[in-house]
């Protein structure tokens, strides 16, 4: 599970978060379903937040002569 999450893209995680919020809002969800959904949603949120907080930007000018 943890390995799979590493591979998950931001878009997938964001979609997961949105889906969780949507399902949770639905009527007729059992408490157990809701709890599962909530936990998943929070996991997705943390994953998204981790990505968004990783300011790893590199700006590079490719040198054609070097190549």
């Amino acid at each position: 599970m943890a390995k799979q999450e590493k591979k998950m893209s931001f878009e997938e995680a964001l979609a997961g978060l949105e889906r969780s919020a949507e399902v949770l809002k639905k009527d007729g969800t059992t408490l157990e379903e809701a709890m599962q959904c909530f936990d998943k949603g929070v996991e997705y949120y943390k994953y998204c937040n981790e990505i968004l907080s990783d300011a790893k930007q590199k700006i590079e000018f490719y040198d054609k002569k070097e190549a």
Partner: peptide
């Protein structure tokens, strides 16, 4: 995503 999380917490 903060908003989405808040909504999760709120609904829960």
């Amino acid at each position: 995503i903060e908003g989405e999380k808040d909504s999760l917490v709120h609904v829960m």
